[in-house]
Amino acid sequence: MRRTLAIFLTSLILWAVLGRLNDALSVARVTLFGGGLFVAYAAFTLPLAEGLGAALLAGALLDAGAPVRFGTHALILGGAATLIFALRERLPHDQAGGRVGIALAANAAIFLALSAAHLGARAAAAGIWPRLGSDLLLSELFVALAAPWFFALQAQTLRYVPRDPDGMF
């Protein structure tokens, strides 16, 4: 629980940074999305309950300010965290490059899943895909640049938080 809250705290910092960046970028009509960063580190380092809890809390954070049914982001981020957890033994999660690659793949998958969920029938409108494509491209660039810093921040934060003695998983 304490480690889940510690990871959530770092997610809160990332959420605030992304909010300010997107505010500044609004003049150019582009948006950065960092969903992959919210789930990747917790999913490949923490036990299932803690990693999933952190992803659900980060998703609820995104849900609170979005005009969508509450829980949409939480379930999609939770799904991504579960998938990474299930596959982590087969993924190169102990190398820095591999971790960034996992975060990039997760970010793209979450972005596309959210686009489908948000737009629904409107996704058929071909005109929206150039905008979504440019947002995704810039978001991937942002994730690639920010992932080493954010993972280091999460690792340092977890160093100060002892493991729960009654961890279930």
Partner: peptide, 11 residues
């Protein structure tokens, strides 16, 4: 306080 101009919505 904040601008949120995604491809999905503008708020």
């Amino acid at each position: 306080a904040q601008r949120d101009f995604t491809g999905w919505w503008q708020r």
